[in-house]
Design a protein around this nucleic acid. Sequence first.
DNA 1: CTGTTAGCGCTTTCAC
DNA 2: GTGAAAGCGCTAACAG
Lengths: 338, 338
Amino acid sequence: MSVTINDIAKRAKVSSATVSRVLNNSGYVKEETRQRILVAIKEMNYTPSAIARSLSKCETNTIGVIVPDITNAYFGEIIKGVSERAERNNLNIILFNTDNYLEKEVRALKLLKEQRIKGIIMTPGFGEEKFNENYIKTINTLNIPIILVSADVKFTKLNGVFVDNIKGGFEATNLLIKEGHTKIGIMTGLLSSEPVMDRLEGYKRALKENDIDFCSKYVLYGDFKLDKAYELTKKLLKEKDRPTALVVCSNMMTMGVIKALKEENKDIPRDLAIVGFDKIDFLDMVGLNITYMEDCPIELGRSSMDMLFDIISSNEDDSVRRRIIAPQIVVKGSEKKI
Amino acid sequence: MSVTINDIAKRAKVSSATVSRVLNNSGYVKEETRQRILVAIKEMNYTPSAIARSLSKCETNTIGVIVPDITNAYFGEIIKGVSERAERNNLNIILFNTDNYLEKEVRALKLLKEQRIKGIIMTPGFGEEKFNENYIKTINTLNIPIILVSADVKFTKLNGVFVDNIKGGFEATNLLIKEGHTKIGIMTGLLSSEPVMDRLEGYKRALKENDIDFCSKYVLYGDFKLDKAYELTKKLLKEKDRPTALVVCSNMMTMGVIKALKEENKDIPRDLAIVGFDKIDFLDMVGLNITYMEDCPIELGRSSMDMLFDIISSNEDDSVRRRIIAPQIVVKGSEKKI
DNA sequence: CTGTTAGCGCTTTCAC
DNA sequence: GTGAAAGCGCTAACAG
């Protein structure tokens, strides 16, 4: 067992209450006594137990963070943003990585509840069946403030910080139109994903607003993964009537598209103009300047932690908070019409 | 306040001890009573408090993980590996991101101690002054099992899972020698970094073993960052007597080298052969096949969690455990001598 | 099989 | 200024 507050109390010949006072800087303590206690703490290498404190105060200084894929830099950035702000507010983070498994999300939620954390920041995974009844029920009966980041959960009206993906899809498409493209395709991710649906919606709106007919043939249904994108692109390149430009809904898929184009010796943007989504750090450096829509995940992280803190601090106010951040467009040249 | 074990006890007309028994599957409980309790738990949506349990049992089911940069996929992989194994052992993870700041590491260590966690898995940052007295003292007086991952801390003999970087440097260099290169350079990171020193050592050994004179001019002192690597390469390309091959000690620097080569219209490996360190996911896809030494960070993560669990489980055995994993060489062609 | 009771380490009145 | 004591929610003997 480690040193406790009582050990310190004995050593300094005071009561544990007094030790507690100097630990928390609460109440008056004679300077002399305080010093004696401080010395005892040093000498015995005492560290107060957050556990005991939590139980006693009926509150922790911990929040939960749930992400679908910790190896993805996008979520790394989110966590970094959360972590920055959490640190500022003296909050610790319990992390769960779900590998996109629904059950793992549910499990994480339950474990976090056991930990009596102050709140949860979560990016739901993009599994096929996010309408799962058990899932929704778990969230609804959680009774802990929860902030969704980046992705929404259908059939709930939860707090969250999101990206305006309709705008993203719109801007991406619009840029291509302004460049003179009229045959514009889009490669989606799984349609169970809100962001993708929204981007698709934005895409359609941009076409409509510019009197370009929507052509269902130009919609390529990907699954966020590189391989599928690669395949789809390969197939696309074989078509006679194919788009001159492509909006690609995720960075992994952008990589797949590029891979296929390279293999077929096609030039970007000459043979196919591209506007992607999400930053791909390494592309510039190898001379591949791909225009993309940028989510600023670190900002999403910061913003969600701020929102959570705001909720925690304002006890009564239980209104639903939703913030929607507009993505940035980063123009690099791959959208050009040549 | 949330529902407690006593609420359940009252509701089910038993004592809290009995409830505890069914919660933990310990001791005998009449099936009928058990059912009554289970119903009460359901009805009241009760979730036991891990806090109270921890205090009572004097042990948590939490470990701490400290990394220098959560946005770096390398550490993401490590965390994923840790997380996989932690999950298997019903352990939660409290995460700290230090941005490579020594003080943040120290702070994290202290906060983790307050949380009475079972153990710590940490990758120390690669700041300049890792010999800091206060730092060493904090670690030594921690009194919590700690596993270092990937990077060691000087002047301590702590448990850890490391990469055999001497071997890495050796193999990288040796491969180039076998290809016929004799003028081989190396780009290091900050020399305060153990891994880099080891790679440099391996580099020297390989040269020696093949009777190639070490040429100090061929050692480029980088700082892990892309920009510096870029500069150094630019400068290198201007030299008349320059190496035909380069061992590059980190992926960021590899990117910098590539960037410079591209800009100068130099070909890999014709103008400069390269063996890098660490995987760069996106390179293959853009047709840049760079040979590299691979750490398998997810394995480091798994292995470190397994080691920690082993330590936790075997109370008495306080011997220092150190495992050294050999890196893999992934040959892609950039090492060729043309 | 089940209840009573004494902690776990800390905070927080309420006295003195 | 300081101490005594109750209590946070749970577990773990020990009785019965």
